[in-house]
Every structure is written in C-alpha cells, then in structure tokens.
Amino acid sequence: MPAAGCGIDWAEGHHDVAIVDENGAVIFSGRIGNDAAGLATSASSSALGRDGSPHC
C-alpha cells in the first residue's frame, strides 16, 4: 500500500485537512466541520484516492 501523510489544522469551528501521497501530491484537501458529519467526511475522504477509488 502506498504511503500517505495527513495534516490537520484543528480549530474551534472547523478543521482544514490535507492528505498527500508519498510523492507529495495532494490526495485530499478541504475544510470539515467540527461535528460528527465533518469527522465522517474526513474519514471517508482519507480512504479514497484522487479518482475516488478506495485505498484499502
């Protein structure tokens, strides 16, 4: 499985998330809400590749 890294800028009202692959290419970048729906968005986005296909 290819390596990936994730960075989260945690804030009170929202969180900015970026996920990059082993070459530094952005797989996902976005802002998520500070609630259950935002966490679900982050979790599902981190499991998908650039083309929407699952990583695992």
Rank of each mutant, 00 (worst) to 15 (best):
G33S: 03
A3C: 01
L48E: 13
H14K: 07
N23A: 14
V17N: 01
I8R: 01
V20C: 13
L48G: 06
D16G: 04
G33V: 01
S53M: 14
D16M: 02
S29G: 12
G30S: 06
W10S: 02
H14F: 07
L39V: 08
T41H: 13
T41D: 15
A43Y: 12
G52M: 02
A4T: 13
F28W: 01
D9C: 00
I27L: 13
S53W: 15
N23V: 14
H15L: 06
A18D: 03
A40S: 15
M1P: 04
A18S: 01
G33M: 05
H14C: 04
S46N: 13
R50M: 08
S45F: 02
H15G: 04
V20E: 14
A4H: 15
H14L: 02
L48V: 11
A18Q: 05
G24Y: 07
H15W: 13
G24N: 10
A37H: 08
P54Y: 10
A3N: 00
H14W: 01
D16F: 08
S42L: 15
T41C: 14
T41N: 12
A3Y: 08
A43R: 14
L48N: 10
V26W: 14
S29E: 14
G24S: 05
A43C: 12
E22S: 08
M1Y: 00
S42P: 05
N34G: 02
A47W: 04
P54R: 12
D35A: 06
L39G: 07
N23H: 12
I8E: 04
F28H: 05
A3T: 03
C56K: 09
V26N: 03
P54L: 15
G49F: 10
A43T: 06
A40N: 15
A11P: 00
H15M: 07
R50C: 01
N34T: 00
D35L: 10
V26S: 06
D21G: 03
I32D: 05
H15K: 04
G33R: 00
N23F: 14
M1A: 09
R31P: 06
A4M: 05
I32C: 09
G49V: 04
G38V: 02
I19N: 04
G30R: 06
G7Y: 00
N34H: 05
E12R: 00
I27A: 11
C56S: 11
W10R: 00
G24V: 08
S29I: 09
A40K: 15
N34Y: 06
S46R: 12
S46F: 13
A11K: 00
G5K: 00
N23S: 15
P2L: 07
G38K: 02
V26C: 07
L48A: 12
G49Y: 11
S29N: 09
P54M: 09
L39P: 01
G30D: 03
S46T: 12
G24R: 06
I32R: 02
N34E: 02
A47I: 01
S42F: 15
R50L: 07
P2R: 09
D35T: 10
D51S: 08
A3G: 05
I8M: 00
V26Y: 11
G49R: 15
F28M: 00
A37Q: 11
G13C: 11
S44P: 02
H14T: 08
A40T: 15
P54F: 13
V26A: 06
T41K: 15
G30H: 06
S44I: 03
A43E: 12
E12Y: 06
V17K: 01
